[in-house]
């Protein structure tokens, strides 16, 4: 493990994202060690989505530097993209393709070797092999979420981003998702956006609260007092949209 990925999985320095007078993110600083699980909390419009879009190379910072897995999100975006995966509340799958075709398609996009075999083994791992020839349109919400986890793991990423992955899931599907996250937890770094305080705190090793584009609180879980934390979070909710 002597690659560029050193101690920090995420290194954010003076990150500002503006357009005109609007500040989506304002001088955000934080670090995340490798193997950590970061939960990002904040009211709507606090800049959570913008932050994750920048960390996943989909937007560029206006100011400041951001390194993910030791790679600059602007200069080395191409390299970085093959090291990260995203699981969103949107399945990010083509409804008119079968489960297998979807996985093979994304395997091709990532340049995965033996795409057919890799797709098959992941389908087995997420227990969807029996439905592999059905179009994704016919899948239930929970099945879609499992398949989208398979999609995110296709290229064996080092880091996983979760964008409100629990929204719209029934309790059973939530259990399955929990289970799958637990299985991959030990050798991936996670960043999760969440509205659900309890769930987010339960899973995380680090927590971050954003409000109006600024970091209100950033701390490892050991240093967090749950009641204080909830109090701080509630005080930001009233702050509205930046």
């Amino acid at each position: 493990m002597t690659d560029v990925c050193t101690d920090s999985a995420v290194e954010v320095r003076g990150l500002t994202r503006t357009f005109g007078v609007r500040k989506a993110l304002d001088k955000v600083d934080f670090d995340l060690p490798r193997g950590a699980f970061l939960s990002v909390f904040g009211p709507n419009g606090a800049g959570k989505t913008t932050l994750v879009r920048i960390l996943t190379t989909l937007s560029a910072p206006s100011k400041g530097t951001v390194k993910v897995c030791g790679l600059d999100v602007v200069e080395q975006s191409d390299k970085l993209r093959s090291k990260i995966g995203l699981i969103s509340h949107n399945p990010l799958l083509y409804p008119d393709l079968t489960a297998e075709e979807n996985l093979q398609f994304f395997a091709d996009m990532y340049g995965v070797e033996n795409p057919a075999q890799r797709a098959r083994e992941l389908l087995i791992a997420v227990e969807l092999d029996h439905r592999r020839l059905d179009t994704v349109r016919t899948f239930s919400r929970g099945m879609l979420q499992r398949l989208s986890i398979a999609r995110a793991l296709l290229h064996r990423p080092e880091m996983l981003f979760l964008d409100e992955p629990y929204s719209g899931l029934d309790p059973h599907a939530m259990d399955i998702l929990d289970n799958l996250i637990a299985q991959v937890r030990h050798d991936h770094t996670f960043v999760m956006i969440s509205h659900d305080l309890d769930k987010g705190l339960e899973l995380c090793s680090h927590a971050l609260i954003l409000a109006r584009g600024k970091v209100v609180l950033s701390a490892p879980k050991e240093e967090i007092d749950v009641d204080d934390f909830k109090q701080t979070y509630r005080s930001t909710v009233g702050m509205g949209v930046a």
Binding site: R81, N90, L92, Y94, M109
Partner: peptide
């Protein structure tokens, strides 16, 4: 519209594709 539908375009942009 096919690409937009389920956020597939985003998944496409996340992959290391020029």
């Amino acid at each position: 519209v096919h690409e937009k539908d389920q956020g597939c375009l985003e998944a496409l942009l996340l992959s290391p594709v020029d």
